[in-house]
């Protein structure tokens, strides 16, 4: 009886190796079709560039980083492959959530040992670090670590190794957040 209840509580996820094969084939298809892999952080970068360019165009033009991503022909930086990819990622996630019954009302997921507030502070801090890091790293887990390493880029391997390695180094300090 007990096992039945536990099973009911467990969400329906696909087998991770099956998921990995699907993701690998998708990545291969992206290389074959577009000549580049998957990306997630690029869309946020272009969004930031667009907003800053709208609010303070002179400031954006004068900054060597923003100006790299403002199209010379005056078109919007948002009219870009990366933006459409991220929109797709959002709706693809929503579709999966709807099919497997995880698309629900707004909630905070956190370890029972910490409050929702602590979890949100950690999520925000982690996001900021990831945001800064992804720009130094030329991409995040998707663009640099996964797609970069799969296309045998040495830089991709560095980002992947550091990302997981440093995670393990600091895991002990942040264990209260998770276990």
């Amino acid at each position: 009886m007990d096992t039945k209840i536990v099973k009911k509580q467990q969400p329906k996820y696909i087998n991770p190796y099956f998921g990995g094969i699907l993701l690998g084939l998708l990545l291969l298809a992206a290389f074959f079709i577009a000549g580049r892999g998957l990306s997630a952080s690029g869309a946020v970068k272009l969004l930031v560039v667009t907003v800053v360019d709208k609010v303070a165009p002179a400031h954006a033009e004068g900054n060597a980083y923003y100006s790299k991503f403002i199209p010379a022909d005056g078109s919007s930086p948002l009219y870009n492959w990366l933006i459409f990819g991220a929109i797709g990622t959002f709706f693809g996630g929503m579709l999966s959530g709807a099919i497997f019954g995880r698309l629900k009302k707004l909630r905070v997921e956190h370890s029972p040992k910490i409050s929702a507030r602590t979890r949100l502070i950690a999520a925000g801090a982690g996001g900021i670090l990831f945001g800064i890091g992804s720009q130094f790293g030329r991409g995040c887990s998707s663009g640099a670590a996964l797609s970069g390493t799969a296309s045998l880029s040495f830089g991709g391997l560095i980002v992947m190794a550091l990302m997981f390695g440093i995670g393990y180094v600091f895991a002990w300090f942040f264990r209260k957040l998770w276990i």
């Binding site: 950690a122 999520a123 925000g124 801090a125 982690g126 996001g127 900021i128 670090l129 990831f130 945001g131 800064i132 890091g133 992804s134 130094f136 790293g137 995040c140 887990s141 980002v159 550091l162 990302m163 997981f164 390695g165 440093i166 995670g167 180094v169 600091f170 895991a171 942040f174 957040l177």
Partner: peptide, 9 residues
């Protein structure tokens, strides 16, 4: 930075 952000966030 991403490794740190990963384990915190």
């Amino acid at each position: 930075l991403m490794g740190l952000g990963f384990v915190i966030g």
